[in-house]
């Protein structure tokens, strides 16, 4: 018989205790924290970074990962691109009544495995079970705390004309993988999600190379939306070279059919950086030495800084330049 989560698992009684012991502590370890109402941690530095995110991905299992792995990589990466070294993570689960216990175990185990890879400890958690229909199967929230080392401070203020824009690999993989997984019947491709923790790669770069001005993980809204936000927030204009942007062939193929632009599709294991042009090739070489950055490419440059309103421009293969805006809520055709 399939074991399912019932409302009783969330009532705080014996069933809850069993769930915590058999599923969470078994996977995450650190039983010492479970004895108190809070997890007590010691911070090696005065300055810390905190990041929180909720994960509601649908479907919860997809090629290349699941909601649990994503809940770790997502928060780890948010900390890492802020220049922090992720240390600890908390996790809260909202589970729909009737969710299969073994699926929950699978999710939790992959969280533990990913935490192991990223070298972060999962130190506190919470579980709620809600009535059928209140959530779609399983939602997870994670909060991460990272350590900021003075010497690793990124420096957006130094951004200047000529700086390079580097992306650590192909764009759009996660977006297409999720779409394909969601609609198995018309299976678009067998692309896997790129979801991965980038903290080690980023940390190495920060330790060894100067001139990294700023970085972001281009998740929701894709590379384009992320860069538009940077351009506007820091008042510079980026010119991207369309042909140089790495896109997997199958992702491009799927995009061609769907009418999507890979620049606007989510990534979960990519970082985009603005780097002093003098150090760009060092960064590139270092990235390429890591399996997570093997397709790293310089995709553009800062065309001007000190703009009233920064812009993201795309030099197209046709030789025209197109201004890119944030991902629009809908993709309505403009051609009359």
């Amino acid at each position: 018989m399939v074991q399912r989560i019932s409302l009783a698992h969330g009532e705080g009684g014996e069933l809850t205790h069993q769930l915590i012991q058999n599923v969470f502590i078994k996977s995450f370890g650190h039983p010492e924290h479970a004895q108190l109402d809070s997890a007590i941690v010691t911070c090696p530095t005065q300055t810390i970074a905190v990041s929180t995110d909720s994960y509601v991905v649908k479907p919860i299992f997809f090629p290349g990962g699941n909601i649990g792995k994503l809940a770790i990589t997502g928060t780890v990466n948010d900390l890492a691109v802020s220049g922090a070294i992720p240390q600890v993570i908390t996790a809260a689960f909202i589970i729909e009544e009737g969710f299969q216990l073994n699926e929950l175990k699978k999710v939790v185990e992959s969280m533990a495995a990913e935490a192991e890879i990223a070298k972060v400890k999962i130190i506190a958690g919470d579980t709620k079970v809600v009535e059928k229909g209140s959530v779609d199967r399983l939602f997870i929230n994670t909060t991460g705390i990272g350590e900021i080392r003075q010497e690793h401070r990124i420096n957006p203020g130094a951004i200047q004309k000529g700086d390079c824009v580097i992306v650590s690999g192909t764009v759009g993989d996660h977006g297409i993988a999720i779409l394909s997984a969601r609609h198995e019947h018309g299976l678009f491709t067998d692309v896997e999600s790129d979801c991965a923790s980038l903290n080690h790669l980023i940390q190495e770069l920060l330790e060894e190379i100067d001139g990294i001005r700023i970085m972001r993980d281009p998740t929701r809204g894709g590379l384009a939306t992320t860069l538009v936000e940077l351009c506007e927030d820091f008042h510079f204009t980026v010119e991207l070279d369309e042909v140089s942007i790495p896109v997997r062939r199958d992702v491009q193929g799927a995009c061609d059919i769907l009418g999507f632009d890979p620049l606007f599709l989510a990534n979960e294991g990519k970082v985009v950086m603005i780097v002093d042009s003098k150090n760009a090739h060092k960064v590139l070489a270092k990235m390429k030495g890591n399996v997570l950055g093997e397709n790293a490419t310089i995709i553009g440059h800062i065309a001007s800084s000190d703009e009233q309103t920064g812009k993201l421009l795309l030099k197209t293969a046709m030789g025209t330049s197109r201004r890119l805006h944030r991902l629009a809520g809908m993709l309505l055709p403009r051609i009359c």
């Binding site: 018309g186 059919i257 769907l258 309505l332 009359c336």
Partner: peptide, 24 residues
């Protein structure tokens, strides 16, 4: 044929398939 297979899914699941009634 490959595209039509995918398009079936696009139409059913309303993926990037805005509704239109136009002469053009």
């Amino acid at each position: 044929s490959k595209e039509i297979n995918m398009m079936e899914s696009m139409v059913i699941n309303q993926i990037n398939s805005p509704m239109a009634g136009t002469c053009g």
